[in-house]
Protein backbone atom coordinates (compact mmCIF):
# COMPACT_ATOMS: atom_id res chain seq x y z
CA UNK A 1 0.00 0.00 0.00
CA UNK A 2 2.78 2.35 0.93
CA UNK A 3 4.59 1.59 -2.28
CA UNK A 4 1.53 2.39 -4.30
CA UNK A 5 1.13 5.74 -2.57
CA UNK A 6 4.76 6.51 -3.12
CA UNK A 7 4.49 5.56 -6.79
CA UNK A 8 1.50 7.80 -7.39
CA UNK A 9 3.20 10.61 -5.57
CA UNK A 10 6.22 10.17 -7.77
CA UNK A 11 4.08 10.11 -10.89
CA UNK A 12 2.20 13.21 -9.86
CA UNK A 13 5.24 15.14 -8.81
CA UNK A 14 7.23 14.16 -11.87
CA UNK A 15 4.33 15.26 -14.02
CA UNK A 16 4.16 18.55 -12.18
CA UNK A 17 7.71 19.32 -11.34
CA UNK A 18 9.84 16.59 -12.83
CA UNK A 19 11.43 16.00 -9.43
CA UNK A 20 13.57 13.15 -8.10
CA UNK A 21 11.79 10.35 -6.25
CA UNK A 22 11.30 10.96 -2.54
CA UNK A 23 13.64 8.96 -0.38
CA UNK A 24 12.26 6.90 2.48
CA UNK A 25 12.24 8.53 5.85
CA UNK A 26 14.07 5.62 7.32
CA UNK A 27 16.85 6.01 4.79
CA UNK A 28 17.17 9.69 5.45
CA UNK A 29 17.29 9.30 9.21
CA UNK A 30 19.83 6.55 8.83
CA UNK A 31 22.04 8.76 6.68
CA UNK A 32 21.74 11.64 9.14
CA UNK A 33 22.62 9.41 12.04
CA UNK A 34 25.62 8.11 10.19
CA UNK A 35 26.95 11.63 9.83
CA UNK A 36 26.08 13.06 13.19
CA UNK A 37 26.48 10.23 15.69
CA UNK A 38 29.75 8.63 16.62
CA UNK A 39 31.57 6.13 18.79
CA UNK A 40 34.11 8.68 19.88
CA UNK A 41 34.77 12.30 19.14
CA UNK A 42 37.19 14.92 20.31
CA UNK A 43 36.48 18.56 19.58
CA UNK A 44 37.68 22.03 20.34
CA UNK A 45 35.02 24.69 19.83
CA UNK A 46 34.01 28.22 20.54
CA UNK A 47 30.53 29.02 21.77
CA UNK A 48 29.33 32.58 21.26
CA UNK A 49 26.20 33.60 23.12
CA UNK A 50 24.51 36.72 21.85
CA UNK A 51 21.94 37.76 24.37
CA UNK A 52 21.85 40.99 26.38
CA UNK A 53 25.60 40.81 26.41
CA UNK A 54 27.83 38.99 23.97
CA UNK A 55 30.06 36.35 25.50
CA UNK A 56 32.48 33.93 23.91
CA UNK A 57 33.57 30.65 25.49
CA UNK A 58 36.36 28.34 24.48
CA UNK A 59 35.64 24.65 25.10
CA UNK A 60 37.17 21.26 24.68
CA UNK A 61 34.80 18.30 24.46
CA UNK A 62 35.02 14.49 24.44
CA UNK A 63 32.09 12.37 23.34
CA UNK A 64 31.61 8.63 23.66
CA UNK A 65 28.65 6.98 21.96
CA UNK A 66 25.31 8.59 22.36
CA UNK A 67 25.17 9.26 26.08
CA UNK A 68 28.61 9.94 27.53
CA UNK A 69 30.34 13.24 27.21
CA UNK A 70 32.93 15.37 29.01
CA UNK A 71 33.58 19.09 28.54
CA UNK A 72 35.99 21.64 29.91
CA UNK A 73 36.07 25.42 29.63
CA UNK A 74 39.38 26.93 28.55
CA UNK A 75 38.27 30.54 28.38
CA UNK A 76 37.26 33.12 29.58
CA UNK A 77 39.30 33.33 32.76
CA UNK A 78 36.21 33.47 34.98
CA UNK A 79 35.01 30.12 33.75
CA UNK A 80 38.34 28.46 33.01
CA UNK A 81 38.61 25.06 34.56
CA UNK A 82 34.86 24.48 34.82
CA UNK A 83 34.17 20.89 33.83
CA UNK A 84 31.08 18.85 33.04
CA UNK A 85 30.70 15.11 32.91
CA UNK A 86 27.68 13.29 31.58
CA UNK A 87 27.34 9.57 32.01
CA UNK A 88 24.02 8.22 30.82
CA UNK A 89 21.31 10.20 32.56
CA UNK A 90 23.57 11.78 35.19
CA UNK A 91 25.40 15.05 34.85
CA UNK A 92 28.03 16.54 37.16
CA UNK A 93 29.40 20.03 37.14
CA UNK A 94 32.75 20.95 38.67
CA UNK A 95 33.32 24.57 39.72
CA UNK A 96 37.02 25.35 40.15
CA UNK A 97 36.50 28.53 42.19
CA UNK A 98 35.03 26.57 45.06
CA UNK A 99 36.51 23.17 44.24
CA UNK A 100 33.10 21.53 44.44
CA UNK A 101 31.08 19.17 42.34
CA UNK A 102 27.39 19.88 41.68
CA UNK A 103 25.13 17.16 40.40
CA UNK A 104 22.57 18.30 37.85
CA UNK A 105 19.60 16.09 37.29
CA UNK A 106 16.18 15.85 35.78
CA UNK A 107 14.70 18.87 34.11
CA UNK A 108 17.79 20.98 34.86
CA UNK A 109 19.53 19.13 32.03
CA UNK A 110 17.28 20.96 29.67
CA UNK A 111 18.21 24.39 31.05
CA UNK A 112 20.44 26.59 28.95
CA UNK A 113 24.05 25.86 29.78
CA UNK A 114 25.90 28.97 30.95
CA UNK A 115 22.81 30.94 30.08
CA UNK A 116 23.06 29.96 26.41
CA UNK A 117 20.40 28.65 24.05
CA UNK A 118 21.92 25.18 24.14
CA UNK A 119 20.97 22.90 26.97
CA UNK A 120 23.32 20.42 28.60
CA UNK A 121 21.43 17.73 26.82
CA UNK A 122 21.67 19.46 23.44
CA UNK A 123 25.39 19.78 23.76
CA UNK A 124 26.30 16.59 25.44
CA UNK A 125 24.08 13.93 23.91
CA UNK A 126 24.06 12.69 20.39
CA UNK A 127 21.17 10.30 20.10
CA UNK A 128 20.22 8.35 17.04
CA UNK A 129 17.14 9.82 15.49
CA UNK A 130 16.09 6.57 13.91
CA UNK A 131 15.70 4.93 17.29
CA UNK A 132 13.60 7.62 18.86
CA UNK A 133 11.44 8.93 16.06
CA UNK A 134 8.99 7.87 13.40
CA UNK A 135 9.42 10.09 10.41
CA UNK A 136 7.69 11.07 7.25
CA UNK A 137 9.24 12.79 4.27
CA UNK A 138 6.95 15.63 3.33
CA UNK A 139 8.61 16.88 0.20
CA UNK A 140 11.25 19.25 -1.11
CA UNK A 141 12.11 22.73 0.00
CA UNK A 142 15.06 25.10 -0.05
CA UNK A 143 16.94 26.65 2.84
CA UNK A 144 19.16 29.62 1.94
CA UNK A 145 19.06 28.52 -1.67
CA UNK A 146 20.14 24.95 -0.90
CA UNK A 147 17.82 22.11 -1.94
CA UNK A 148 16.53 20.06 0.99
CA UNK A 149 14.21 17.23 1.87
CA UNK A 150 11.65 18.28 4.39
CA UNK A 151 11.01 15.61 6.96
CA UNK A 152 8.62 15.51 9.89
CA UNK A 153 9.47 13.46 12.94
CA UNK A 154 7.35 12.37 15.87
CA UNK A 155 8.89 10.60 18.81
CA UNK A 156 7.38 7.45 20.26
CA UNK A 157 9.30 8.09 23.44
CA UNK A 158 7.80 10.73 25.69
CA UNK A 159 11.04 11.34 27.58
CA UNK A 160 12.71 12.87 24.55
CA UNK A 161 13.47 16.65 24.75
CA UNK A 162 11.76 17.42 21.47
CA UNK A 163 8.74 15.20 20.84
CA UNK A 164 8.28 16.66 17.42
CA UNK A 165 10.77 17.88 14.86
CA UNK A 166 10.71 19.28 11.40
CA UNK A 167 14.04 19.01 9.55
CA UNK A 168 15.29 20.31 6.26
CA UNK A 169 17.97 17.86 5.20
CA UNK A 170 20.27 19.04 2.41
CA UNK A 171 19.98 16.72 -0.52
CA UNK A 172 23.65 16.42 -1.28
CA UNK A 173 25.28 16.38 2.17
CA UNK A 174 22.39 14.79 4.09
CA UNK A 175 23.00 17.18 6.98
CA UNK A 176 19.97 18.92 8.51
CA UNK A 177 20.57 22.49 7.39
CA UNK A 178 17.68 23.60 9.58
CA UNK A 179 15.69 21.91 12.29
CA UNK A 180 12.63 23.15 14.11
CA UNK A 181 12.26 21.52 17.51
CA UNK A 182 8.81 21.40 19.08
CA UNK A 183 7.27 20.56 22.42
CA UNK A 184 4.42 18.08 22.81
CA UNK A 185 1.98 20.99 22.84
CA UNK A 186 3.16 22.13 19.46
CA UNK A 187 5.08 25.11 20.82
CA UNK A 188 8.24 25.84 18.82
CA UNK A 189 11.09 25.55 21.32
CA UNK A 190 14.26 25.92 19.25
CA UNK A 191 15.55 26.49 15.75
CA UNK A 192 18.85 24.79 14.99
CA UNK A 193 20.81 25.44 11.80
CA UNK A 194 23.95 23.67 10.61
CA UNK A 195 26.39 24.86 7.97
CA UNK A 196 30.03 24.79 6.80
CA UNK A 197 29.90 21.05 6.19
CA UNK A 198 33.30 19.36 6.03
CA UNK A 199 34.29 15.89 4.89
CA UNK A 200 35.74 13.38 7.31
CA UNK A 201 37.27 9.97 6.91
CA UNK A 202 34.81 7.14 6.29
CA UNK A 203 32.41 9.23 4.23
CA UNK A 204 31.25 11.22 7.21
CA UNK A 205 30.11 14.77 6.77
CA UNK A 206 29.85 17.11 9.73
CA UNK A 207 28.89 20.76 10.04
CA UNK A 208 31.58 23.04 11.48
CA UNK A 209 29.09 25.70 12.42
CA UNK A 210 25.79 25.49 14.27
CA UNK A 211 23.46 28.27 15.31
CA UNK A 212 20.74 27.66 17.86
CA UNK A 213 17.98 30.07 18.67
CA UNK A 214 15.79 29.50 21.71
CA UNK A 215 12.39 30.63 20.48
CA UNK A 216 10.94 30.87 23.96
CA UNK A 217 13.70 33.06 25.36
CA UNK A 218 13.73 36.18 23.26
CA UNK A 219 16.58 38.04 21.59
CA UNK A 220 19.20 35.40 22.10
CA UNK A 221 21.17 33.08 19.85
CA UNK A 222 24.11 30.78 20.39
CA UNK A 223 26.72 29.92 17.76
CA UNK A 224 28.98 26.88 17.97
CA UNK A 225 32.07 26.81 15.80
CA UNK A 226 34.32 23.79 15.75
CA UNK A 227 38.02 24.67 15.57
CA UNK A 228 39.31 21.11 15.82
CA UNK A 229 37.31 17.94 15.25
CA UNK A 230 38.39 14.30 15.35
CA UNK A 231 36.34 11.14 15.16
CA UNK A 232 37.26 7.62 16.16
CA UNK A 233 40.14 8.78 18.29
CA UNK A 234 40.62 6.49 21.25
CA UNK A 235 40.90 8.14 24.68
CA UNK A 236 41.94 7.21 28.13
CA UNK A 237 39.07 5.68 30.00
CA UNK A 238 39.82 8.27 32.65
CA UNK A 239 38.00 11.07 30.87
CA UNK A 240 34.65 9.50 31.54
CA UNK A 241 35.06 9.15 35.26
CA UNK A 242 34.49 11.45 38.22
CA UNK A 243 38.23 11.45 38.88
CA UNK A 244 38.70 13.45 35.73
CA UNK A 245 36.19 16.00 36.90
CA UNK A 246 38.00 16.82 40.10
CA UNK A 247 41.60 16.54 38.96
CA UNK A 248 43.86 19.51 39.65
Amino acid sequence: MRYLTLLSLVVVSSLAFAEDALPSADELLGAMDKNLTFQSRRARMTMTVEGRRKRTYDLISYGRGQDDSAMEYLAPARDKGTRMLKLGGDLWLYLPGVDRVQKISGHLLRDGMMGSDLSYEDLMSSAELRRAYTARVVGSDTVDGVACWKIEMKSHDDTVSYPRRVSWVTKDTLIPAKQELYALSGLLLKTWTMSDVKDFPGGRKFPMKMVVVDNVKKESSTTLEFKELEFGHPFEQEVFALRWLERH
Binding site: V49, G51, R52, R53, R55, D79, L93, L95, G97, V98, R100, Q102, G112, M114, G115
Partner: peptide, 9 residues
Protein backbone atom coordinates in the same frame (compact mmCIF):
# COMPACT_ATOMS: atom_id res chain seq x y z
CA UNK B 1 23.66 38.36 35.07
CA UNK B 2 23.83 36.20 31.92
CA UNK B 3 22.35 33.19 33.60
CA UNK B 4 25.60 31.30 33.97
CA UNK B 5 26.24 29.35 37.10
CA UNK B 6 28.61 31.06 39.45
CA UNK B 7 30.16 30.17 42.74
CA UNK B 8 31.88 31.73 45.68
CA UNK B 9 33.23 30.48 48.94
Amino acid sequence: QDGSMSSLK
